[in-house]
Write a protein that binds this DNA or RNA. Structure first.
Length: 345
DNA sequence: CAGCCGTGGAA
DNA sequence: TTTCCAAGGCT
């Protein structure tokens, strides 16, 4: 049923008269379009807008961002989450600067090779910026398509998403960029997850689920696994020079962001002293308790203030800590610390 | 493929 | 409070 030009025409006509005025729709610069798509991954439009505005002001060209310092980029990304996105984008942009004369490749095969470019971003950027006939399948599109076709497959499976992408590419019109954006816009504003506004839908007559009154049964998605809970003690270790022990996080979670020493609750102080190479006074002051929820885990954190006479390369003046990129989890703890009188130690 | 990777808002 | 999920990609 989608193989009809009336579907495409109805959708595009609706889009052109109803699309929101979003900052990335005011540009035809492939670099800015690409940046917006990276920011929009798993992130709502309303959240992205201020970050996008800040980035295109501070890094107005691909060249500017390629030449930027990674820690500065992470600081500007702070609070947006999924921090590997900006690290990968930085890497990809440097790649473009070196190997493509700082011009975003107008070529799907070349573009898909870049770091952080998957099926969605590749299709979105190549269709919107260069009008290649590729689909951009995101959560909105999967939901819309599953309802249009009463598609009972598990939409969380990569294979199903690939299949939907191919189905769209068989019927995608020459205005591929607008078509992709129209499908997403429809999902974001009309064909919403809960209480969809079918009465307002421009392609209502093409929708199998609407015809059979089964819209609320779609999309079919596998349940998410339960979050794992972890409890830590977090330490503000301050020396006599008003410096605090803080370091850059390694591993996968929050990589590149700074964090305070954080240990399982049963870790001995002696072990911490040895690992951090500091001597800690016996006295410790309780600061507070915080909870932070990630996609797949929950941190419960108890924070304490400790005094030391030690000093090493991991100590940073308390007044300079705000310049370092930090996760929201750490920022929550710091808010309590800032309100505390640590000078009493 | 399944699990991992942030954060905030809505119902 | 709990659950879902938002212009997904990597390993």
């Amino acid at each position: 049923m989608l193989q009809s030009s009336t579907f495409n025409n109805s959708l595009l006509e609706w889009y052109h008269s109803n699309k929101r005025d979003l900052p990335w729709r005011r540009t035809s610069d492939p670099y800015k379009i690409w940046l917006s798509e990276v920011m929009l991954q798993q992130t709502q439009v309303i959240t992205v807008i201020p970050y996008f505005t800040k980035f295109i002001t501070k890094y107005p060209t691909l060249q500017h961002l390629a030449d930027a310092d990674e820690q500065a980029l992470l600081k500007d990304w702070e609070g947006l989450g999924y921090y590997n996105r900006i690290r990968n984008f930085h890497s990809a942009v440097k790649d473009v600067k070196e190997n493509y004369n700082a011009e975003v490749p107008d070529n799907p095969d070349e573009f898909f090779e870049l770091k952080g470019v998957g099926p969605y971003i590749g299709g979105a950027v190549q269709s919107i910026a260069f009008n290649h006939l590729l689909a951009a399948v995101d959560g909105n599109v999967l939901r819309v398509m599953s309802r249009l076709n009463e598609d009972s497959r598990d939409m969380t499976k990569a294979g199903v998403q690939q299949s939907v992408k191919k189905e769209i590419e068989e019927i995608i019109p020459l205005e591929a960029g607008d078509f992709n954006q129209a499908l997403m816009e429809l999902g974001a504003t009309i064909c919403t997850p809960r209480t969809p506004k079918c009465i307002m839908c421009p392609v209502q007559e093409h929708c199998e689920a609407f015809k059979r009154n089964t819209v609320n049964n779609f999309p079919i998605k596998k349940k998410k696994t339960k979050k794992k809970e972890e409890t830590y003690n977090v330490y503000f270790i301050v020396n006599d020079a008003q410096e605090i022990f803080i370091y850059k996080q390694e591993g996968d979670l929050l990589k590149g962001m700074y964090e305070l020493p954080k240990y399982d609750v049963d870790t001995n102080i002696e072990n911490i002293e040895e690992e951090l190479d500091v001597r800690l006074d016996d006295k410790r002051i309780y600061i507070g308790s915080d909870k932070h929820v990630f996609t797949h885990k929950i941190w419960y954190m108890e924070s304490y203030l400790l005094h030391t006479t030690s000093k090493n390369e991991y100590f940073v003046p308390v007044g300079e800590v705000h310049e370092l990129p930090m996760s929201i989890a750490m920022k929550k703890i710091f808010r309590k610390f800032a309100a505390d009188e640590f000078a009493e130690l």
